[in-house]
Measured scan of single mutants.
Amino acid sequence: MIINNLKLIREKKKISQSELAALLEVSRQTINGIEKNKYNPSLQLALKIAYYLNTPLEDIFQWQ
C-alpha cells in the first residue's frame, strides 16, 4: 500500500487542489482522489507532483 503526504505538503505550501490540478493538467477530482488514497498516481504524474511541489518524491509517497 502506498501512503501519501500530498495533502499535508500541498497545504503547507499554501497551494489549493485546483491550483495544483491546473499546474499538472489534471482535474481537481484527480488530486482529491490521490489525497484520499482512492487510487495511486502513475509514475509520470507522481514525478510531476514532486517537481511542482519542489519536494522529493519519497517525501510525498511512501510504501507501507
Score class of each variant (00 low, 15 high):
39 Y>I: 14
44 Q>D: 12
8 L>W: 09
22 A>Q: 12
59 D>E: 14
37 N>C: 08
7 K>S: 10
48 K>V: 05
49 I>Q: 00
9 I>G: 02
35 E>P: 01
20 L>Q: 00
61 F>H: 01
39 Y>P: 04
1 M>R: 05
55 T>W: 05
31 I>V: 12
34 I>S: 00
47 L>R: 13
62 Q>G: 09
43 L>P: 09
55 T>Q: 06
30 T>M: 12
21 A>Y: 02
12 K>T: 13
51 Y>R: 12
26 V>G: 02
4 N>R: 02
18 S>V: 12
2 I>G: 05
11 E>G: 07
62 Q>A: 10
39 Y>G: 05
8 L>C: 10
35 E>T: 01
38 K>N: 12
45 L>N: 03
15 I>D: 00
25 E>W: 07
36 K>L: 14
4 N>M: 03
31 I>F: 03
9 I>V: 13
40 N>K: 11
28 R>F: 09
6 L>S: 03
41 P>R: 01
61 F>I: 03
56 P>T: 07
44 Q>M: 11
32 N>I: 15
50 A>R: 03
55 T>H: 08
25 E>P: 06
63 W>V: 05
57 L>S: 03
52 Y>A: 14
57 L>V: 12
20 L>P: 00
27 S>P: 15
26 V>L: 06
27 S>T: 10
34 I>M: 05
46 A>F: 03
52 Y>H: 13
34 I>Y: 04
23 L>M: 14
42 S>K: 06
45 L>Y: 02
44 Q>P: 12
61 F>R: 00
38 K>P: 02
13 K>R: 13
38 K>L: 15
59 D>K: 11
63 W>L: 05
7 K>F: 06
31 I>Q: 01
34 I>G: 00
17 Q>I: 13
60 I>L: 12
44 Q>I: 12
41 P>Y: 03
62 Q>C: 07
29 Q>S: 15
18 S>Y: 12
52 Y>K: 06
56 P>K: 09
23 L>H: 13
48 K>E: 09
49 I>F: 04
33 G>R: 15
20 L>W: 01
40 N>A: 15
23 L>Y: 14
29 Q>W: 13
43 L>A: 07
2 I>M: 11
12 K>M: 14
24 L>G: 03
22 A>H: 13
9 I>K: 04
23 L>R: 10
11 E>P: 02
4 N>G: 04
58 E>W: 11
43 L>C: 08
1 M>C: 07
2 I>N: 07
41 P>H: 02
34 I>K: 00
16 S>P: 06
34 I>F: 04
16 S>F: 04
48 K>A: 11
12 K>N: 12
49 I>C: 05
43 L>H: 10
32 N>Y: 10
46 A>Y: 03
3 I>Q: 09
18 S>L: 12
2 I>R: 10
35 E>L: 02
17 Q>S: 07
52 Y>W: 11
44 Q>L: 12
33 G>W: 13
3 I>F: 10
13 K>V: 10
38 K>Q: 15
17 Q>N: 04
49 I>E: 00
16 S>M: 06
6 L>N: 02
